[in-house]
Simulated assay, not measured.
Amino acid sequence: MGTHLITGAGSGIGAAVAERLAERGEDLWLLARNAGRAAALRERFPAARTLIGDLADPAKLSWALGHQEQPVGLDSVLHIAGVVQLGEIGDLPVKAWHEQLNANLVAPAELTRLMLPSIRLNRGHVVFVNSGAGLNAHATWGAYAASKFGLRALADSLRLEEHGNGVRVTTVYPGRTATAMQVKVHQQEGKEYDPTRWIDPASVATAVITALDLPRDAEITDITVRPGH
């Protein structure tokens, strides 16, 4: 059984991935924003351990994690947490840019940097759950797409840099998925939300688990997941 660090395990795709790995008896480390969220995660995943670190403030992650017990070896780091705020470039305030770039790009880069020694030790796997917005940018999605285009670049560079260390890197690009984030997106778009139109988070979790379980002679670099109806 492996050891995995997961962000965004409180809901949506992150929770679906955590549930699948927990069912297999894997060792889970779940990153939480604060002590309250950490307690909720431990209640939902009793066998898991938690780390407290706020992805909204990546400059403080090193200090925060340095004061906590950390996994010695990691078989994967699964970057699944994310935030979104839509708006036209002419209207979106700089705070919205900072929030999305910090949580969606800078924090995954910093968390990966901090965990690389543990990942290298186990010749582990880094998975970035990106977005269709990481491949195509549309009107009102500029800041979010910029953070996700950057995340794609981060993954591609990391893959080349760490290949010699036996580290695998996968990016998953889901289309619209029935999560709490999608509810927020629909509210911002002024549209009625119908979860049956979108991908089940469990289906994206299957894509993530497939990449993790692939035999060591191969590496899935990119997976695009789209609604099937």
Rank of each mutant, 00 (worst) to 15 (best):
L30D: 00
E99M: 13
A9N: 00
G82E: 02
L31Y: 04
H186T: 12
R152H: 02
A202Q: 02
N104K: 12
V126T: 13
A48F: 07
H67A: 15
K184P: 02
H229T: 11
Q68G: 03
K148G: 06
A137H: 12
A47C: 09
R152V: 01
W198S: 10
R42M: 07
E23R: 04
L151Q: 15
D54C: 13
P117K: 07
G134C: 13
V169Q: 05
R176W: 08
K191L: 14
P201C: 12
A16E: 01
V172Q: 01
A40M: 09
S76Y: 08
P58K: 01
D75I: 05
W97K: 09
L78P: 01
D57H: 15
L41P: 03
A211M: 08
D222Y: 06
E189N: 11
E99L: 08
E110S: 10
P215R: 10
L31Q: 06
N130F: 12
D200M: 14
L158P: 00
P108G: 01
A22R: 06
L111S: 02
H4S: 14
G142L: 13
H186Q: 05
G14Y: 01
R20P: 06
L28I: 08
A16H: 03
G190K: 14
S203D: 01
R176P: 10
A32G: 13
E219K: 09
K148D: 02
R123M: 06
P215E: 03
R159G: 08
N136W: 07
E88I: 07
G142H: 15
E161T: 04
E189T: 08
T170H: 00
W63Q: 03
A180I: 10
D217M: 15
R226D: 09
A32I: 14
G8Y: 00
V183S: 05
S11L: 15
T206L: 07
E99G: 15
Q100K: 04
T50W: 02
I13V: 13
V17A: 07
T170Y: 00
S147Q: 03
T221Y: 14
A109H: 08
G12W: 03
L30Q: 01
L28W: 05
L28R: 07
A153W: 02
L214P: 00
E219D: 15
G132A: 13
K191V: 10
T3G: 10
Q187P: 08
Q182F: 10
H229D: 12
I13Y: 08
H186E: 03
G36H: 06
S147T: 06
L41F: 09
G150F: 04
F149V: 04
L114C: 13
E99Y: 11
